[in-house]
């Protein structure tokens, strides 16, 4: 039941505007664990020790940061919309 006009239509226009994130450095941590006492995330480095200054990526969740593998950048500091918002 394919509409021939639809099939021959170019790709969704907005998708053609998609671009990669700026290239950047490698993440300095490998995982985050919950500190039961403080209820804060503990950022663990590749050496298995906590990363002292996690400020470099305060703007984002690591998911967003890892998209561009950046130390301090982010996909969108203000308007990232993903996952479950409610």
């Amino acid at each position: 039941m394919t509409d021939p006009q639809l099939a021959s239509r170019p790709a969704p226009w907005g998708l053609g505007r998609m671009r990669p994130f700026p290239p950047a450095a490698v993440l300095p941590y490998t995982e985050v664990v919950l500190d039961p006492a403080t209820q804060q995330g503990l950022w663990i480095g590749p050496d298995g020790l906590p990363v002292v200054d996690a400020k470099h990526k305060r703007s984002e969740t690591s998911k967003e940061t890892s998209k561009q593998t950046s130390l301090d950048g982010n996909s969108d500091a203000g308007s990232d919309q993903e996952g479950d918002t409610d």
């Binding site: 239509r9 170019p10 790709a11 969704p12 226009w13 907005g14 998708l15 053609g16 505007r17 998609m18 671009r19 990669p20 994130f21 998209k67 561009q68 996909s75 969108d76």
Partner: peptide, 25 residues
């Protein structure tokens, strides 16, 4: 598998084709 996103950029009106029909822009 490379993550992509849309950055705000000026557009060339000549690129506005039937692909706009696919969804809300």
């Amino acid at each position: 598998g490379r993550a992509l996103t849309v950055w705000v950029e000026e557009l060339d009106p000549d690129t506005l084709d039937a692909g706009v029909r696919h969804t809300a822009h």
